[in-house]
Structures are given as structure tokens and as C-alpha cells.
Amino acid sequence: MIERREAIKRLLANRPRDLFVVPGLGSTTWDVTSLGEDARDFHLWGAMGGAAMIGLGLALAQPDKRVAAITGDGEMLMGLGSLATIAVKRPPNLAIIVFDNGVYGETGMQPSHTSSGVDLVATARSCGFANCLDVGSEPELDTLAGKLGAGGGLLFARVKIVREEPPRVLPERDGAVIKQRFRRAIGAAP
């Protein structure tokens, strides 16, 4: 088990220039923002259950760029069907990374289904993700980080994180601003 802020720092310490990130609603958005706001991140303040599918649309549109959706277990559970959709479509440049602490951090730490035995790695594998990582230590985190560059392939990773509530680090909240700066960063808008 890893502290979430340590996990995100290690994961993105040597972030490839062409890695674009979709952090899911809630804690993972604050985690990614704790590293500093970056135009290559499309932060979600809502749209629960949508992070992985936004990642899919983006990965299909930009096959030469690497895309990572980094979200929490509760957000992933709300869009569980998207794991099936993504595995069937098999984009080679997409990583789905779930920070799993078994609780809904934003609403008061109520248990999610992963606390009761729902196994997201097994779920992803049964959907057809050939490359699944179960990350619980710093060396494993470094292995995952190494796959976030070009040629890493379609992958699913669960990162087991400590149940804690570090201070929120809030990014820009205007969705249109986040969208436009992201599109400029990826070269999709003037």
C-alpha cells in the first residue's frame, strides 16, 4: 500500500512529454494537481464514470500520443461497462489506472464494492485487457511508470493506496478553459 500523493509523484516523476492524462472526478484530480497544473491534464470535477471513456475517445483521436486515465475505484465502478468497451476496441496507446482505496473519499469514506471483494484487476482481465498490473509497492509503481511511455500498449493497472485524506489541491474549475488549454497542448486547436 502506498500513500496516494507519493504514488502519483512516482508515477509521473519522469512524465513523457507526449503523455496526456485524464484524472477522474475527485481525489485523483487533486492528486494529479498536487504535481502542479499542467495543460496536458483534462481534470474532471464531475462526469463521474466518464474518465476511462474520455480516455478512449482521446486515444483513438491521437494514436501517436500516450493517454492515461487515472481515476479512483468509485469512479471506475460507475463506468464499469467502459472496461468492456475499451478492451473490445483495444487502443494500443491507452492506460487505465485505478487508485484503489476501497472507499468513496469525497463523500465521507464510505466503502466501495472493492472493499467487499470486487476485484478490478480480475474484472479488467475478464473483459480482455491482456496487460494487467496489480501495483502495491514502489518498485511495481516504477514498472507501471515505465509503461506510460510510447509502446506501452493497452493496459489496466490497480494501484493499492492507503485510505487517507490529504489536503485537496484544486485545479482550474472552468471546464471550457481546461478543454481549450488541453486542445492547444495536444495540437488540436489553434
Binding site: 483534462f42 466518464g50 474520455i54 475517445g57 483513438l60 483521436a61 478543454k179 495536444i186 495540437g187
Partner: peptide
């Protein structure tokens, strides 16, 4: 939304 972010 993701497609548009990537220019499609």
C-alpha cells in the same frame, strides 16, 4: 468529449 479533446 475525448474525441474532441484529441481533435476528432
Amino acid at each position: 468529449a475525448g474525441a474532441w479533446l484529441g481533435g476528432q
